[in-house]
């Protein structure tokens, strides 16, 4: 397994969701950075959601719309005063429309070190089958 070539990481400000569905609770909403790739059998989605615990993450799949919704508790304890604030914390929210038919029963999700790994297996019919051409 090779690792992507090392370069210096650049600081990026977290992208705030500009116009999500009207929020019912106050607080900031950010868009998580994602990697999505597809193999013949499944679609894998990796999302950076630092601070989101597996209990506070909601994943919905409804009519081909996948919704990621993660809550982040403010990490600061009571009595802490800001000295330097470079990033803000808030919810993560992002929606995707899936083009393939997903086998909803076999979806797997796992959180490790603030990265969500979501495996969406395709239903059997959607996986391409090789058809052998018989020659007479």
């Amino acid at each position: 397994m090779s690792v992507a070539e090392s370069k210096a990481l650049q600081a990026r400000e977290k992208a705030e969701v500009s116009a999500p569905a009207e929020q019912t609770r106050p607080g900031l909403v950010f868009t998580p950075a994602v990697d999505i790739f597809e193999t013949e059998k499944e679609i894998t989605l990796l999302a950076d959601m630092p601070g989101v615990k597996s209990e506070t993450l909601n994943i919905h799949l409804h009519e081909n719309v996948l919704t990621l919704d993660g809550d982040v508790e403010p990490p600061e304890g009571p009595g802490e005063v800001d000295v330097l604030r470079e990033y803000r914390t808030g919810k993560y929210y992002r929606q995707f429309t899936l083009s393939q038919v997903i086998d909803q029963d076999r979806i797997e999700a796992g959180m490790t070190d603030g990265v969500l790994r979501l495996i969406l297996p395709k239903v059997e019919e959607a996986t391409p089958r090789k058809i052998k051409v018989k020659s007479k």
């Binding site: 210096a8 990481l9 650049q10 600081a11 990026r12 400000e13 600061e76 304890g77 009595g79 802490e80 005063v81 800001d82 000295v83 330097l84 604030r85 470079e86 990033y87």
Partner: peptide
């Protein structure tokens, strides 16, 4: 922001 990765939050009590 400093523009250097990672962005930091510093607090004190």
């Amino acid at each position: 922001i400093s523009g250097v990765f990672p962005l930091l939050n510093v607090t004190e009590d």
